[in-house]
C-alpha cells in the first residue's frame, strides 16, 4: 500500500467511526427530547444514560477528522477551509449550543425540558448540514471569483442530490440511534422503552434505505463520474442492502422470554451495512478529494511528516486501547450502570 492510500484509508476510518458515533450521539439527543414529555416511559432516561458519558468522546472524533484532513492533505484543507467557511461556521455555532445546553440540561433540573429541547433540536440539525460536505466534494458547487474559490450555497440548497443527502443523514441518524437504544434498553431489561425504540427503528430503516436510493438516482444526474465509479462496486452495495434485510429480520423474529427481536444482531448488521456502502462510496470517490481539482496525490502532505504521523497513530492506538476497553466495560456492559435510575 502506498503512503497516500494508507492516509486516505485512515481518514476514511475516522470519518466512518465519527459518522456512526455522531448518529448515535445526535440521535440519542433527539430521542431524549422526543420522549421527555411522557412520564410513562423510561425512554428518555435510557437515551441520557448513553449520552452522558459518551458525548465528549464522540466530539473528540470530529476534531480527529479535521486534524487528519489537514495533516494528511493540507492542500485539500486549503480548499475545504475556504469553501466551507459558511456551512462550517454554522455547524460550529450549532455544536456550541448543542454541547453547552446538553450539559446544562443535566444540571439545572427545573429547566430540564426547555434546555433539552434546545440541545435536541440543534443536535438534530447538525448531521443535516454536516453531510453537505459530501455532495460539495462531488463538484459543481464551487465557483472561482477573482482567484478565490467560493461555495455557491444557493445551488447546494436547491440541488436534489444535496437534499437527498440531507434526508439520508437525518433518517440514518434516527434509524441507527433507535436501533442502538433498543439494544441498550434490552440490556437494561426495560421492555417498554425497548418496544418504543424497536418500533422507531422499524419505521426509520426503510426511510433511510429509500433516501440512499434517492442519492444514487440523483447522483446519476449530478455527479456521473461518481455514479459510474459506484457501479464498479455494485457487489458491495448489493451485500450492503442484504445486510439491511438482515437487520429488519433481526428486529421482528421472536426472541427469548417474550422479547421480540434480536437487537444486538440488528446493530451489528446495520453497522456492516453502512460500512460496506461507505466503502463502495469511498473507493468510487478516489482519487478525488474534491472533484475535479484536488486529488489525494496533489493534496498529500510531506512524506517525512506522514511517516512521523503514522508512527504516532500506532503509539497512540496502543496507549489508548485499554482506556477504550475499560470505558466500554463500565458504560456499555455494566448493568449496574445501565439499569440504575439516574
Amino acid at each position: 500500500m502506498t503512503d497516500v492510500i494508507l492516509a486516505i484509508t485512515v481518514l476514511w476510518g475516522f470519518i466512518f467511526i465519527y459518522a456512526v458515533m455522531a448518529t448515535m450521539d445526535f440521535g440519542a439527543g433527539f430521542w431524549s427530547m422526543l420522549y421527555i414529555k411522557s412520564d410513562k416511559t423510561n425512554a428518555t432516561n435510557i437515551a441520557n444514560k448513553y449520552l452522558s458519558p459518551t458525548w465528549e468522546v464522540t466530539n473528540v472524533f470530529i476534531v480527529a477528522v479535521v486534524v487528519a484532513i489537514y495533516s494528511f492533505f493540507p492542500s485539500a484543507a486549503y480548499t475545504l477551509g475556504t469553501v466551507l467557511l459558511i456551512p462550517g461556521s454554522i455547524i460550529l455555532l450549532l455544536l456550541a449550543i448543542r454541547s453547552g445546553f446538553l450539559v446544562f440540561s443535566h444540571i439545572v433540573s427545573d429547566y430540564e425540558k426547555p434546555l433539552t429541547y434546545i440541545s435536541g433540536i440543534t443536535g438534530f440539525l447538525i448531521p443535516a448540514i454536516l453531510i453537505l460536505v459530501l455532495p460539495i466534494t462531488h463538484g459543481g458547487f464551487v465557483d472561482n471569483v477573482n482567484g478565490v474559490e467560493q461555495l455557491m450555497l444557493g445551488s447546494v440548497l436547491t440541488s436534489p442530490h444535496a437534499l437527498s443527502f440531507v434526508l439520508f443523514a437525518v433518517s440514518s441518524t434516527l434509524f441507527l440511534s433507535s436501533l442502538l437504544l433498543a439494544d441498550f434498553s434490552k440490556v437494561a431489561k426495560d421492555k417498554h422503552a425497548y418496544e418504543i425504540y424497536r418500533r422507531d427503528a422499524l419505521i426509520l430503516g426503510p426511510v433511510s434505505l429509500l433516501s440512499a436510493l434517492l442519492i444514487m438516482i440523483t447522483m446519476r444526474y449530478e455527479a456521473f463520474w461518481l455514479f459510474n465509479g459506484m457501479m464498479d462496486y455494485l457487489f458491495w452495495l448489493v451485500v450492503s442492502a442484504a445486510m439491511f434485510v438482515v437487520t429488519g429480520i433481526a428486529l421482528i423474529i421472536p426472541g427469548k422470554n417474550g422479547w421480540t427481536g434480536l437487537p444486538r444482531l440488528g446493530v451489528v448488521s446495520a453497522f456492516i451495512q453502512y460500512a460496506l456502502a461507505s466503502y463502495a462510496y469511498g473507493r468510487a470517490h478516489l482519487p478525488y478529494i474534491i472533484y475535479p481539482n484536488v486529488t489525494i496525490q496533489n493534496g498529500f502532505t510531506d512524506p517525512a511528516s506522514f511517516r512521523a504521523l503514522f508512527i504516532s497513530y500506532i503509539v497512540g492506538f496502543i496507549i489508548l486501547f485499554p482506556g477504550f476497553v475499560y470505558f466500554w466495560r463500565l458504560f456499555m456492559k455494566d448493568e449496574r450502570y445501565i439499569k440504575n435510575e439516574h
Partner: peptide, 21 residues
C-alpha cells in the same frame, strides 16, 4: 482552517504532530 487556510497548509505539512498527539 476556516480563517487561516494559508497558515494551516504550512502547519499541515510541517507541524501536524502536536495536533495529532
Amino acid at each position: 482552517s476556516l480563517l487561516w487556510p494559508g497558515f494551516m497548509e504550512v502547519i499541515g505539512k510541517v507541524m501536524a504532530l502536536p495536533f495529532q498527539i
